[in-house]
Design a protein around this nucleic acid. Sequence first.
DNA 1: GGAATTAAACTGACTGGTCAGTGCAAAATC
DNA 2: GATTTTGCACTGACCAGTCAGTTTAATTCC
Lengths: 214, 214
Amino acid sequence: MTIRAMESSRAVDSGSSRRQLTRQKLYEAAVTLIAEQGFSATTVDEIAERAGVAKGTVYYNFASKSVLFEELLRHGVRLLTTSLREAAEKTAQDGGSKVDALDAMIRAGLVFIDRYPAFTQLYVAELWRTNRAWQSTLMVVRQEAVAVVEGVLRDGIANGELSEEIDIPLTAAALVGMVLVAALDWQAFQPERSLDDVHAALSRLLQGRVSGNR
Amino acid sequence: MTIRAMESSRAVDSGSSRRQLTRQKLYEAAVTLIAEQGFSATTVDEIAERAGVAKGTVYYNFASKSVLFEELLRHGVRLLTTSLREAAEKTAQDGGSKVDALDAMIRAGLVFIDRYPAFTQLYVAELWRTNRAWQSTLMVVRQEAVAVVEGVLRDGIANGELSEEIDIPLTAAALVGMVLVAALDWQAFQPERSLDDVHAALSRLLQGRVSGNR
DNA sequence: GGAATTAAACTGACTGGTCAGTGCAAAATC
DNA sequence: GATTTTGCACTGACCAGTCAGTTTAATTCC
């Protein structure tokens, strides 16, 4: 087992040392507060209080408020890309088509957003800002996620399943956006709908079964 | 004519009284700064400086920083919904189908975002936040925009052009999201692409011409 | 088993700086 | 001469980050 692998496995299982526990509590407190109010409007005192921890502890665990935020971002996006990749690989193993893979990724995206709505909110709110300290972190991390979708599109074109005319990066971005915005709207404005409902609506859009009679 | 009516009519035509000119400069300064940095991270001093105006003038024209921002929001969304509605009505007059209307609205959305990228950035960043002062303003204004899309979908189903199975609110939200995110990605990550390119990619997605051979 | 020792983790009062908003007299503009 | 803008000093609240001291838990030693 490589050192790298050890590190990432430790980072993935939310370790249970005292320190890891505190960090976890801080992540959870920060993610909801920042999703609600934005980064600048959220104070370190608030985060500490919500986490049930003294302010000094925040600074014992993170170099600064923005470092806390950056690590939070990385942590969250790692979860998302992992889950997208798994969804794509699973349908491949089951001998599904590429459209099936896209559909499975849509569902995986919805499940993620359903489980971590605050993180998604915060991510969308920060992604297109310019001139912010964590800008580069966000770009890298966005590219990772979109690349998974682009890969599936590329494979689909290669095997003739998808039209050669589609613009890979633009279509990938549009698909991601479709899922993101539909899911946030679902959460915010019609939370009574089931995940299956939302998935069905997006599937239909993906597969061009919007326009008429069939 | 009531005082209220006078105020709002004056706010609509970007009038050219001395006062209106100052307000316009303040809007422009505020929209870019807030898009870049967020509301809380942007100071009133910065806005005044960028607008080339004294700080006192900001407070002579707006009751507070957040009032300035709210009026900015209303101003911007008014422009967007007007332009969406016009696009939909135009294709209707030209005897176009409902899918044509949707397509025209996609283009209108893209044109708007192309012209006012900072406003769009800022709008997306604030829309799904909870617990903010201008939350209700945003909700109302979002509903206006989505309603235009929903109306076209509803008409399309009524005349048999669109499938009865589609979920109107969810599909409308997904379409708006598709355009929004694709456009922001276009601006941020591949600004060299032309508006026509982006429009073509989204049209294809809308009309289900993604999956191969036909 | 229990006392002593140690390092890691945590605490919270404090500091220095920042910023929204005020006040006002003088100047510019219409 | 009325409205609008300027310039700038000032206030009071708020907040990121610091640090000297305390607690916790694990280890060593008797």
